[in-house]
Simulated scan of single mutants.
Amino acid sequence: MSLAESVVDVTVLIVAYRSRRTLPKALAALEHQTVSPRSVRILENGSPEGEGVEGAQVPAGYELLESPVNLGFAGGNNRLAEDASGEWLLLMNPDCYPEPDWLERLMQAAAAYPWASLFGSTQYADGGEGHLDGLGDVYHHSGFFYRGGYGRVLPPPTDGEVFSPCGAAMMVRRSLFEGLGGFDADYFCYGEDVDLCFRARLLGHRAVQVAGAVVVHEGSASSSRYSDFAVYHGVRNRAWTFFKNMPWLLLLFSLPMHAALTLAHGLVCARRGQGRLYLRALRDACRAWRNVRAKRRRILSGRRVALGTLARAMSWRPLDPIRRRPVIREIPAGE
Rank of each mutant, 00 (worst) to 15 (best):
W102F: 07
F144W: 13
L135K: 11
F163H: 11
G136Q: 08
A111R: 15
D159Y: 05
P98D: 11
G149E: 08
L89F: 07
G130A: 00
A111S: 13
R152T: 00
D95A: 05
L89W: 04
D137A: 13
P157K: 06
H141N: 13
S117R: 06
A109E: 03
L135T: 06
E104R: 14
E104P: 03
L135Q: 15
Y146F: 15
M92N: 05
D95S: 09
Q108D: 02
E129N: 01
Y113W: 08
D137C: 11
L135A: 07
A125W: 00
A109D: 05
A125K: 07
W102H: 05
G160E: 12
G128C: 03
A125G: 01
A116L: 09
Q123V: 09
P100A: 08
L118T: 12
L154S: 04
V153I: 13
S117W: 06
D101H: 10
V162S: 01
L103G: 02
E99Y: 12
D126A: 14
D95T: 09
F144N: 09
G134K: 10
S142R: 02
G136F: 08
F119M: 03
H131R: 15
R152M: 10
L132A: 00
L90D: 00
D133A: 14
M92E: 02
D137K: 14
G127W: 03
P156F: 07
A111D: 11
L132E: 02
L132K: 02
Y139T: 05
M92H: 05
G160Q: 12
G143R: 03
G120C: 11
G149M: 05
V153N: 09
F144I: 13
D159P: 02
L103F: 10
P98H: 10
